[in-house]
Design a protein around this nucleic acid. Structure first.
Lengths: 203, 203, 203, 203
DNA sequence: CATGAATGAGAATTCATTCAT
DNA sequence: AATGAATGAATTCTCATTCAT
């Protein structure tokens, strides 16, 4: 019975994923999902209290991954600024994101492009805001350590670059690329960012 | 009578703008707009043949501005690459965009974030694609003029930076900023881009 | 001024005729008519109190013709049965109808096929009912004159043949025919009817 | 549950039948039907995907009967002309139609008089056209068998008589008659047709 | 746990008619 | 007399959610 239940839940989540990816949150109807899952409409509500909740559950893996990553990086607040500027460090960081993306293309597409109308419609914005806050704290910390660093970078600039990273993810998503291609892009991206920031920070 | 008509049309367009900005295209109902404009529902259709058309008319100023700018820049294809790399040229270019933005904050918000479900839902994507095409042509032209330039930048990278520019606009939009702040950001942005591209192109 | 008014009225009636013929009573909107007449919507109501009234006025020529014919034939009640059975008499009668048809093809089409939803939607039925009543009176009269005539023809049969005549008109209308073709058909029709009725009445 | 479903479907079809018969396709609203069936408006769409489809389902019995009959008569193409001229053969044929009519008075009324605006609005015309085609084929066949038969009857005349038969059905419909009355009428009708055609064909 | 029928509000759009100008 | 903007009710159809079975 428990097994059966889990199976059904998975089938619902899967069907929902397909439909949300195809038509977006608003245009997807519970009926479509039920049909896709081979399940009665009413039964959906035995597993998920509402359409919005179902949507959140579908996207749980990706949102969780983002939050997990966020927490992990929270603990790197102690990392030294100059160390962070190394290509290696950055590359490994970004590749971490890329792995998330690559394992969850569909979910990310939904989260970034098809969430309008749901409670997750502002996820990207909220997340970047949070991330920016974190970076601002990190910057303040660095100021103490390296007084010579030009820390007068606007908060906005920090925010913008966070968003840009996401934008890059989006573009990678939308232009179905091979892993090799992705690696090359990441490299170009990192180069670009490193050069720019080093200049701005006058390191 | 003529005055009255124009007045009502403006009131409808205004109400529509407010509602579309608040709730997005899909979730905004003609009833809401009518109520907002202090007008009967049916009367909306004396001015605009459909919801989608009304939406397009609301956004006409901003879409027209984008297309006009696109056409103007089309004629700069002859511009030399090295000239374009000057801070001055770039700054003036970007400020052009910024002026558009600044005069049409709400409209841009709608166009970029709230157009899902309308015929303009792909405007940003289509526009960046077009812009990318243009830049690719420009790159090819530059290859002839400056054979020493490293032209092996992926199309994707070109595309990405076009999108980034838009992203910056979006962010400027969302963080209601003063003109001075905007100027500083543009400066940082230009610096960043110039440095990065000079490096990539090995100029 | 009076001239102008008449001109406008004619233009409205004409435009209405076109539209009613094209789309039928229900599907034709007052706006369409106004546009067709080159007149403001509101002005229609200065000439005709309602859509239904306008419809009636458009069809007035044809309905009037039918009623006029009806009245004329009312006075033929004195005509002798055996005289009426002659080809000549019948032919001339039917040709009378044909002339009406031919001069008013469009109006008849409207009256017969496009009146649903209007107060004239039952015109044909009402008219045939009245005509049948008249013929029944005529039959009763004949019984006195020619006791040997088999008068036991059902009222229904009388009704049916009235309807058939109309049906023939409809078919002639729908198969745009030349006058010669029409004449041939009428001849065949009369032959058919004469033969049949002579047999039924055992004349 | 299954019983309930069938019951409701019947109630909807019945209510729809009543309303369509009363007001015709266009003027009947889904709300009226829902109210008549004691059902919510939305629920109609659980049974029928559209108003037009509901209309078609309501009329399915009668349209199916017509097509079935058409197919059956298609196989009588081999029947000899002179045989067909016998009263018995014709009577049995027409009675076949009459039986259909008698069991479906309301439906035929709807199909013939109240279908405007629906996808069945041309049913009668289409059907008579098809039937006429069939008869023309039959005529051509007879010409070979009985060269002395005067086959120069206009196509129009053939068409007209097909329509007339339908017209008779319509009239029978509209004048609620007993079966005995109907039989008498059919007899008169057949007599009329036989006499007339024999004369026209110079048999 | 499962069904899908049922609900009822809400969507966009149409249209005859009125009325201020 | 003429305009056409304005109204508001009516149209078909959709859909998240509930509930009897």
């Amino acid at each position: 019975m428990q097994v059966l239940k889990d199976d059904i839940k998975k089938r619902i989540l899967n069907a929902a994923k397909q439909e949300f990816a195809k038509r977006g949150f608003i245009k997807t109807s519970m009926r479509d999902i039920a049909k896709g899952a081979g399940v009665g409409v009413g039964n959906l509500y035995n597993y998920f209290p509402s359409k919005d909740n179902l949507f959140n559950e579908v996207l749980a893996p990706i949102t969780a991954a983002f939050y997990a990553m966020f927490d992990r990086h929270h603990s790197t607040n102690g990392t030294d600024a100059l160390e962070m500027m190394t290509q290696d460090y950055l590359t490994s960081s970004v590749l971490e994101y890329v792995n998330i993306i690559n394992g969850n293309r569909t979910l990310m597409k939904i989260l970034f492009f098809n969430a309008q109308g749901s409670s997750l419609e502002n996820f990207k914005m909220d997340f970047t805001d949070k991330a920016t806050e974190q970076v601002k704290v990190w910057f303040a910390d660095q100021k103490k350590r390296h007084p010579h660093i030009n820390i007068n970078v606007s908060n906005f600039m920090v925010h913008l670059h966070t968003v840009w990273m996401f934008t890059m993810f989006e573009e990678i998503l939308m232009h179905k690329m091979t892993l090799t291609e992705i690696r090359q892009i990441i490299e170009e991206y990192i180069t670009f960012e490193t050069i720019g920031w080093k200049y701005l920070l006058q390191v």
